[in-house]
Design a protein around this nucleic acid. Structure first.
Length: 992
DNA sequence: ATAGTAGTTGTTTTT
DNA sequence: CAACTACTAT
């Protein structure tokens, strides 16, 4: 069989091999979207014979594009992979603009303005205009307008009086960018759009365009996608509206519908099987997302066992919350007999700023971690200084960078001098740099005479920059960035400067500079091998590409990468050959999208954090929580500090549980404290992770150093448990002895290196906080207390507050609760659905797709209950009831050979429902090798309009032809309503 | 006029 | 905690 299709389930194959030119793959978390997209790229290359340089593949984040490159390298080999045009929209656009920007009058060697630059520019403008607008607000609104393609003039036409101020700022901002030859993030997209509209031949080679995370595209990106594909109109997108979390960046979910409207031959494939998470986690997440009543019912089907119930933990305060995570991480690691490593844990945060307490607690406890997202390496002041020097060297027209460094380190050039220089430059209408040079060399003068000291300082600066530029000219290869950093740091005596300026953490700051050098050489090494190959865009006949001095080119590229980089790629620390250290991941939820971990913590689930107090759209915040929860494979922990002193609202800083977690939900879907991790639970975890079950000895071995085998340090209500607390009041300092080293090691020292990971400084790896020793349970005690751990409920939750949820989950599946559904798709209404008188309403003949109105994975029901369910489900559907899945994978039978682990799930051992293929359009006839013609089973709704019902295989492939006469069918429309309603809503009422 | 310090502020999410 | 303001010492 085709190796590309290996390990793909039916629906995924359907998507990969689809011959439709316009393909939408819509799928919930964990269903293998990216895998499918990757395979489709490979498939297009091998089966359609496209050249890699003729395929554009857009991702949304740098991380995603890296990951896709890696996957593709494995699938099609590095040689082909490296020639693909693959990257974020921004980086792809940059590449086109570098090559062809001259066609639309873009000056050579433009720089990229990052958000610091834009903020500085806007701040200056606001000051000059004496406007009262807040800088950040102006920044955001300008970006928003740009993202909608609204120019200052266009805005002026429709703006209200109070907006006129913004129009002025916007105008000045645009000219400031132009004056410095800078493009901001939005410009990269906009200008590339301009380019391709005016010169479509630049992309005339493009055979296919693929877009990941399509729900995150904004309108400009959507247009870009179409422009990229303008020649052959072959587009594949994957996405999931439920995971749209970039609305703040003007992402528009309705692009899905736009696309369907624009291309009447859109094929839609649904993937619904979740291969990632325990059923219990999916249930909880599903219930969270379903609170969005505008959202269409959408299946999310577990392929794993139910597992153990997620946790919603209350704790006294953020500090305790952090300590609790430490204890739970240790407990999990120890009690699972070493199947969980530190890198299997993740803490996902709404805001990066929440990380500080956690970092402190982890640092103290010796838990190694890395923070991703949040404050970026390249944003650190000392790094920024060097980078700004390099930007000036690269383009002397970069006045903002120049402003930032004229007097750093101090050169006796103060406010007054700068004022003279900038106003002089403005009057002369030349860039600041040129003006300064003229003044120094006596060709011009400022209005007021400059101070001698200042003039001298300027001299030093000019000499440095000129010397650096000289150096750059001499350097004809990719090592230029590195050479320049060293040269500049040397000439500035930068290390000495840091010692003077930051005596507290000078060493760590210097280390960051070193790290920057390291980065530069790494990029150099990378470019050496790649740049000669086809990193460049393919040559197009008749369109000239711009070429540059290769050293300069390397420098601009380096700076662009810096501006577009979220985080730096630390080559897995190759220290003395030993393994890269396993680290817990601390991340923002945004940065965690698309990733997964065996154990996930989501702290601070209180109102104000999630949903964030400044959030404009609550739905997006809910989706954010949904994304966070669905990152978890085996264990999910939510937690909330019941007091948050910092936010002094509501008297004594009491918090309220996130509105997304109403009591109804938390009672049924969560437990109040960490699960007891006895054998059965551990086995379930191992099975879900497809790792070998640990031996009992391994499990017991870990227990020795645990203060407690239970999550009982705090009561379930989130109070200090007095019985666990000895003399010391422990809320802040579990171990005073360690305090001193904490101070040195804490996250305050902002070395890139140190913040990236702590070394475990106690040899056991686990600290036993002395203060909670009374809660200690020895391994022997544990074994004695759990002689026959047969059910998760063996140990009672500390209080009666919560029912023992696992018992409920495992043995008495909840009845379908029709009352809880707001979308009207109750179990009861399913019968209506099939009887369907109300479901005939037609809205439009838009291409759309459908899915089963209601599908929920329940814990393996007992025989009786299954009977019960049958009686409710209408006969035609009953045969497609999801079978008790826990019967399938209870053994750790998965061999390492099957790392992706998909195959066994896709084997026909599962309740099979081959998708019926009907009334397909011509595209489909030739394609699929999957011989489904003789579908053995057929769902009622499948016999219509060319879409297929979702089955347990969940391939719903549908081709819609606009003209096709709508046939009278059973309620299909209805099941589509959700999507369409939503599309409409989003189309119509686009607020803010 | 410049440098350095102290006090005040207000903190989403990312390219 | 850093960015901005206000102040003081050079």
């Amino acid at each position: 069989m085709d190796p590309i299709l290996d390990g793909l389930n039916h629906a995924q194959r359907e998507a990969v091999t689809s011959s439709g030119s316009i393909l939408q793959v819509l799928a919930p978390p964990g269903s293998g979207k990216t895998k499918t997209l990757t395979a489709r790229v490979a498939y297009l290359l091998s089966h359609h014979g496209y050249q890699p340089q003729d395929v554009i593949c857009c991702t949304f984040t740098i991380k995603a594009s890296r990951e896709m490159r890696e996957r593709l390298a494995k699938l099609i080999g590095e040689k082909l992979e490296s020639r693909l045009i693959l990257g974020t929209f921004h980086s792809i656009c940059r590449r086109y603009l570098v090559k062809y920007g001259y066609l639309i009058g873009l000056r050579k060697g433009f720089g990229i303005a990052d958000s610091d630059d834009t903020r500085a520019i806007i701040r200056r403008i606001i000051k000059r205009l004496k406007s009262s607008t807040e800088v950040r607000a102006a920044q955001g609104r300008i970006s928003q307008h740009k993202a909608h393609g609204l120019s200052p003039d266009a805005l002026a036409d429709r703006a209200k009086a109070e907006e006129m101020e913004l129009v002025d700022i916007y105008r000045d901002y645009e000219s400031a960018l132009a004056a410095s030859n800078l493009l901001d993030y939005d410009d990269l997209l906009l200008r590339c759009g301009d380019l391709l509209r005016e010169h479509p031949q630049c992309v005339s080679n493009v055979q296919a365009v693929l877009v990941d995370e399509f729900q995150d595209t904004n309108i400009i990106q959507y247009e870009l996608m179409n422009l990229f594909a303008s020649k052959h109109r072959r587009i594949t997108i994957v996405g999931d509206p439920d995971q749209s979390i970039y609305g703040f960046r003007s992402a528009e979910i309705q692009n899905l519908k736009r696309m369907q409207q624009r291309y009447s031959n859109t094929t839609v494939v649904l993937l619904e099987d979740n291969y990632r998470s325990a059923g219990s986690i999916l249930n909880a997440a599903q219930e969270v997302i379903e609170q969005d009543t505008a959202r269409p019912a959408k299946a999310l089907l577990a392929t794993h066992t139910f597992g153990t119930l997620p946790v919603l933990r209350r704790l006294p305060n953020p500090n305790a919350e952090a300590q609790w995570m430490v204890l739970e991480i240790k407990r999990c690691a120890a009690m699972t007999g070493s199947i969980l490593r530190m890198s299997d844990f993740a803490v996902l945060l709404r805001s990066a700023s929440l990380s500080t307490q956690i970092e402190t607690a982890f640092g103290r406890a010796g838990i190694p971690y890395k923070m991703v997202g949040g404050r970026k390496f390249f944003d650190r002041t000392e790094v920024k200084i060097i980078l700004n020097y390099m930007r000036v060297v690269s383009h002397t027209g970069h006045s903002d960078a120049l402003m930032n460094i004229v007097n750093v380190p101090p050169r006796r050039i103060g406010d007054e001098t700068i004022k003279q220089l900038t106003s002089g430059a403005e009057k002369a209408k030349i860039p600041l740099w040129d003006f300064i040079k003229d003044v120094i060399q006596g060709r011009r003068s400022t209005e007021k005479k400059l101070q001698k000291a200042a003039e001298q300082g300027l001299c030093v600066l000019v000499n440095l920059i000129e010397a650096s530029r000289q150096k750059l000219q001499e350097c004809e290869d990719a090592s230029a960035p590195r050479v320049l950093i060293e040269f500049i740091a040397e000439r500035l005596s930068f290390q000495e400067y840091l010692i003077r300026a930051y005596p507290l953490d000078e060493d760590s700051r210097w280390a960051n500079v070193k790290e920057l050098m390291h980065q530069a050489s790494e990029v150099a090494a990378f470019e050496e091998e790649e740049v000669d190959k086809e990193m460049d865009l393919p040559e197009i006949e008749g369109v000239e590409q711009q070429q540059a001095h290769s050293g300069e080119e390397a420098l601009t590229r380096f700076l662009a990468n810096v501006a577009l980089a979220t985080e730096i790629t630390t080559k897995e620390e190759t220290k003395e050959g030993d393994q890269p250290q396993e680290k817990v991941t601390l991340s923002t939820i945004h940065a965690a999208k698309g990733l997964e971990w065996p154990v996930v913590f989501v702290p601070a689930v209180y109102n104000g954090s999630i949903p964030h107090s400044r959030a404009e759209v609550v739905e997006e915040e809910r989706r954010l929580l949904y994304v966070a929860m669905t990152r978890a494979q085996a264990l999910l922990y939510l937690s909330i500090p019941i007091r948050q002193p910092r936010l002094g609202e509501g008297e004594d800083g009491a918090t309220t549980l996130s509105t997304f977690l109403p009591p109804k939900l938390t009672k049924s879907r969560f437990r109040a404290t960490g699960p007891s991790l006895h054998e059965k639970v551990v086995y379930a975890i191992a099975d879900i992770l497809r790792r070998p079950r640990p031996s009992l000895e391994d499990i017991y071995k870990g227990l020795e150093f645990l203060p407690s085998t239970l999550d009982d340090r705090w009561t379930a209500e989130g109070e200090e448990d007095r019985s666990k607390t000895d003399e010391t009041s422990t809320s802040g300092e579990p171990n005073p002895k360690r305090r001193r080293s904490d101070m040195n090691q804490g996250p305050k020292s902002t070395t890139y290196i140190s913040s990236t990971g702590y070394t475990m400084n106690n040899s056991t790896g686990f600290t036993i906080p002395t203060t909670i020793s009374s809660g200690f349970t020895s391994a022997r005690d544990y074994i004695a207390a759990n002689p026959e751990p047969t059910a998760d409920s063996a140990s009672k939750p500390p209080s009666g507050a919560t029912a023992d949820a696992d018992t409920a989950g495992a043995n008495k599946p909840k009845p379908f609760s029709s009352a809880s559904r707001k979308d009207g798709l109750t179990q009861a209404s399913i019968s209506n659905f099939f009887a369907g008188p109300g479901s005939q309403k037609r809205e439009s003949s838009l291409p759309s797709y459908t899915q089963p109105p209601f599908r929920r994975y329940e814990a393996p029901p007992s025989q009786n209950q299954r009977q019960g369910a049958r009686s409710v489900v209408p006969a035609p559907l009953s045969s497609h009831r999801v079978q008790p899945r826990s019967l399938v994978p209870t053994r750790p039978t998965l061999e390492p050979t099957n790392l992706n682990g998909y195959t066994w799930l896709a084997t026909p051992s599962r309740p099979t429902l081959k998708p019926a293929r009907m009334s397909m359009t011509q595209e489909q006839s030739g394609t699929s090798a999957s011989g489904t013609a003789g579908a053995d089973e057929m769902k009622p709704e499948s016999s219509t309009r060319g879409f297929q019902p979702v089955s347990t295989f969940h391939s719903t492939t549908m081709s819609m032809i606009q003209a096709q006469a709508p046939r009278r069918t059973l309620g299909i429309r209805r099941s589509m309503n959700g999507w369409q309603d939503r599309m409409k809503r989003e189309g119509g009422g686009h607020a803010s």
